[in-house]
Design a protein around this nucleic acid. Structure first.
Length: 424
RNA sequence: GUGGGCGUAGUUCAGUUGGUAGAGCCCUGGAUUGUGAUUCCAGUUGUCGUGGGUUCGAGUCCCAUCGUCCACCCCA
């Protein structure tokens, strides 16, 4: 045998036996966002590299070492999208969606990051994202959060997730806070671990959500971002909390919650779970009022979130939640030359008459016994039987394969259609 | 990029102090003439991740390499 070609590390096949989780997630999201008035948008998977450098931030890990970047034949630097927001903003600007308009958008698709794979983290992964443009109030922030909460309920994972909330303030107030934090930490350099020392230079805010327990006390005593908020951000945040309270949604204010991407401001939130090991975030987002102008658009407030489909699917799988399985209604067993000649034609007649019918036609011959075994294995409710007897009489046998569906019978084709219609 | 665990049949795994491989599931066929999930019987399946080395002899020991899983980093 020749050497086989294998899939790329961190890029997985999703097999039919697992696809129902994806269908359930995607179907629920499509329906739910539709009910909230969000319109679906589809962007290219590849964009100019510059787009991500300008939006995500040149010195972030994503841009520095995790992007799939290459030059095309025209020597232009292109990148496979590591996230969806940048492309969505680019598309909104480019298609003129931001001129004195508001838009509620959502998208879904593959994203790519060159990272070491682990549970809930892959090199090709899939996100569903929602982005809203042109609204600056806390009410739309609340809508996005309430909408995501409803999604967890509809997916039956609401008992496994909690909401964390914070405000990063305006970019001005964040600069002030950043200086305060940096000087606090610089005075205590001897207590910082190796990672934190590095982050002190690159992104001091990230030290706040360090996982190292040795850092916990230092962080607990550090100046709080919430105490440095500008008045407008504070009002915005208070009003958001008020709406969530009024809606009865539980949340936890986490002053250490900072997002990894540079473009966030004011509201940030994360839905987290402890069911997934180290990758506890299933959905994260926030407000990014400055990004549109950063990408060359007219000043436009914006807010959005993204969720990881793999992580949702693993949660559903591990908690025993079933997706919708679509078993066939019937499996057509056909034995003998005449039956096999007519079987396919009869199956087509049934499909004409019953457009919703899930019918598997047996192909490849074999004994009644072996065909019935396959019929059973397919989980079909009924075996439809075509043999010499049935062909002679112009009828078709119907044998229920599941308990409580009655006895086997033989019916003329039209009666069989009527019978199946009642059953499916 | 760093650290740890693991790579044996399609799959889940066993394989004693080194003596050229086994089980369950799956799959195929059968237990009288055309009827499935049970039971019984029979059968197929492997360059033991890859490449070197030690040895009379390596799935087993050593080295390298690749893959995979988990964790760090980072993130959805």
């Amino acid at each position: 045998m020749a050497q086989q070609v294998k899939a790329i590390r961190g890029m997985n096949d999703i097999l039919p036996e697992n696809i129902h989780y994806w269908h359930r997630i995607e179907g629920t999201v499509r329906s739910l966002l539709g009910r909230y008035g969000y319109g679906e948008i589809r962007m290219p998977v590849i964009e100019k590299t510059e787009l991500f450098k300008r939006s995500i931030g040149e010195v972030t890990d994503i841009v520095e070492k995790e992007m799939y970047t290459f030059n095309d034949r025209n020597d232009e630097s292109l990148t496979m999208r590591p996230e969806g927001t940048a492309g969505c903003v680019r598309a909104a600007i480019e298609n003129g969606l931001l001129h004195n308009q508001t838009h509620r958008l959502w998208y879904q698709g593959a994203m790519f990051r060159y990272e070491r794979p682990q549970k809930g983290r892959y090199r090709q992964f899939h996100q569903i994202g929602a982005e809203v443009f042109g609204m600056d109030g806390p009410d739309i922030d609340a809508e996005l959060i309430l909408l995501s909460a409803r999604l967890w309920r509809e997916l039956e994972i609401d008992s496994m997730v909690t909401l964390q909330l914070n405000s990063l303030g305006s970019s001005e107030s964040r600069v002030i806070y950043r200086d305060k934090l940096t000087s606090y930490l610089s005075e205590r350099k001897d207590q910082l671990d190796e990672d934190s020392l590095r982050r002190l230079e690159s992104n001091p805010l990230r030290i706040l959500d360090s996982k190292n327990p040795a850092m916990a006390e230092l962080i607990a005593n550090a100046p709080k971002l919430t105490e440095e908020l500008d008045d407008e951000s504070k009002q915005h945040f208070d009003e958001l909390c008020r709406i969530l309270d009024a809606a009865g949604l539980k949340y936890e204010i986490n002053p250490c919650l900072v997002r990894g991407l540079d473009y966030y401001s004011k509201t940030v939130f994360e839905w987290v779970t402890d069911a997934l090991g180290a990758q506890g975030t299933i959905c994260a987002g926030g407000r990014y009022d400055g990004l549109v102008t950063q990408l060359g658009g007219k000043e436009t407030p914006a807010v959005g979130f993204a969720m990881g489909i793999e992580r949702l699917a693993v949660m559903m799988q591990e908690s025993g939640i079933e997706g919708k399985d679509h078993y066939p209604d019937a499996y057509l067993v056909q034995v003998g030359e005449r039956a096999m000649q007519q079987g396919m034609i009869i199956a087509e007649k049934l499909r004409d008459a019953l457009p919703g019918l899930r019918l598997i036609t047996h192909c490849g011959g074999g004994s009644f016994k072996s065909q019935f075994k396959k019929a059973d294995k397919s989980h079909a409710r009924f075996a439809l039987i075509l043999g010499d007897d049935e062909i002679d009489k112009g009828e078709i046998g119907i044998k229920p394969l599941r308990a409580g569906d009655g006895e086997q019978k033989m019916l003329p084709i039209n009666a069989a259609i009527e019978f199946l219609q009642q059953q499916i």
